[in-house]
């Protein structure tokens, strides 16, 4: 697999480690009254789509950036990748 790093271009997936669903970036608000339930969902529940999936990859043997990679889990086609911190700043 090759991952299109937004700053460094196509890099072999062996340079990266995988974390999982990009929804892990949406950490619940700990001050809400239902925080425990929200955290339980956040920690334990994931969608497992056959198709387009946004997921987190860490460029461990590279620039140490976390990327949000959009990948089709059926075809392995990679539709895009951006710096996770840019995504986080947008609040997406």
């Amino acid at each position: 697999m090759l991952i299109p790093h937004p700053l460094l271009g196509l890099r072999d997936a062996q340079e990266f480690t995988y974390l999982g669903d990009a929804s892990l970036m949406a950490r619940p608000d700990p001050d809400q009254p239902d925080a425990e339930a929200a955290f339980a969902d956040y920690v334990f529940l994931r969608d497992n789509p056959a198709g387009v999936h946004r997921e987190l990859w860490f460029h461990e043997q590279g620039d140490r950036s976390w990327l949000v990679v959009t990948r089709n889990t059926v075809t392995h086609e990679i539709l895009g990748a951006e710096l996770a911190t840019d995504v986080a700043r947008r609040g997406a």
Partner: peptide, 21 residues
């Protein structure tokens, strides 16, 4: 495992080499 452009003169890249960074 880097393309020629990433190792051209004047380039510096971090990558893996025999499982080492």
């Amino acid at each position: 495992n880097l393309p020629a452009a990433a190792t051209a003169p004047g380039r510096a890249t971090r990558t893996g080499l025999e499982h080492m960074s």
